[in-house]
Amino acid sequence: MLFDLAHIWAALIAFAVLSYVILDGFDLGIGILFPLLRNRQDRHLAMNTIAPVWDGNETWLVLGGGGLFAVFPLAYAVVMPALYPLIIVMLLGLIFRGVAFEFVHRTRRMQAFWEWGFAVGSLVAAVAQGLALGALVQGIAVEGRAFAGGTWDWLTPFSALTALALLAGYALLGATWLILKTEGAPQRRALALARPLAPGFVGLIGAVSLATVFVRPEYMERWFGWPMMLVSLGMPLLVLGLVWALWTGLQRGLSARPFLATLGLFILSYIGLGISFFPHIVPPAMTITEAAAPDSSLHFLLVGAVVLIPMILAYTSYSYWVFRGKVRPEDGYH
C-alpha cells in the first residue's frame, strides 16, 4: 500500500526535512561564508537578511526530529544512537550560531568571538549534517529493535564526500541568497563567491551520485527498474536545465535566478535520495512500514498536521513577504 498512513507520514517527514535543508541551508551557508565576506558591516548585513526568519527555519529541524519520534519512533530510536557524536556536535554548533544573532549586538569586547561562533557553529553543524547523510545512505546496523554498530561507524570516505558536497551546497545557497537580498558591493562579493561554488557543488553532486552506486549496488537497481527508469532518464535533463539557469544567472548577475536554481538542484538531489531509500526509512533493512508507530498515533497527529501545516506555510510565507526586498545597512535590526 502506497497511500496508507505510514507512507503519507513518510512523505510529510521527508517534506519537513527538505524544508529544513533548504531554509536552514541558506542560513548555515551565510555562516559558512561569513569569514569570506568583505568586512564587519557586510557580515552584519548578511546576518540581518536572516535575523527575522532563522528561528522559523530551524523549527523545521525540530519538526523533522520530533516528527520522527512521533510517527517513526523505531527509526528515531535506531538513528539517534547510531549518529550519536554527530547529533551532539551538530546541536552544539547550532547553539553557538543561534545565540550569535543576539549576542553580537550585546557586547563590544566579545563581538568578534560571537562572530566566529556564528561562522564555526554553522560550519560544524553543516559538516555534521553532511556526515550524517552519508552514514544514512551507507546504511545502519540494526539488531532487534536497536542500533548494533560502533560509535564511529559513520566516519567513512563516503560520508566525508557527502559532507563536502553538502557544505558546498549550503555555501552556494547562502551566496545566492545574499545575491537576492543585497545590492551594490556586498552583492558583487556574493556573486564572486558563488561563481566558483556553483561548478564545485554540481561536480560534487555528480561524485556523490556515482559513489552511491558503489556503496550500495541495490540503489542502482531501484533507479533503473521499471517505472523509475522514466524518472532516471528525465532527471539528468532537469539537472542540466537548472545548471544552465544557475550559470547564466550568475554570469548576468541576476538577483533571483541563481538562488532559485540552487533550490531546484537541492530538491532534485533530495528526490534522488528518496528514490534510492524507498521503501526503507533506515537503510539497508528497516522499512517505512516496520518503523511506523501504531495507526492510532499516525492518525491523531495527521488530523492536526493537515490543518496546521498549510497554516504554517501560509504565515511563514507571510513573514518572508513582510521582510521581502533588499536589506540595506541602515535597516539595522538592532
Binding site: G66, F69, A70, V71, P73, L74, Y76, A77, M80, R145, A146, A293, P294, S296, S297, F300, L301
Partner: peptide, 11 residues
Amino acid sequence: FSDKVGPVIGP
C-alpha cells in the same frame, strides 16, 4: 524509551 513511548508522547 523513545521506541516504546514514542507512539504516545511523540504525537
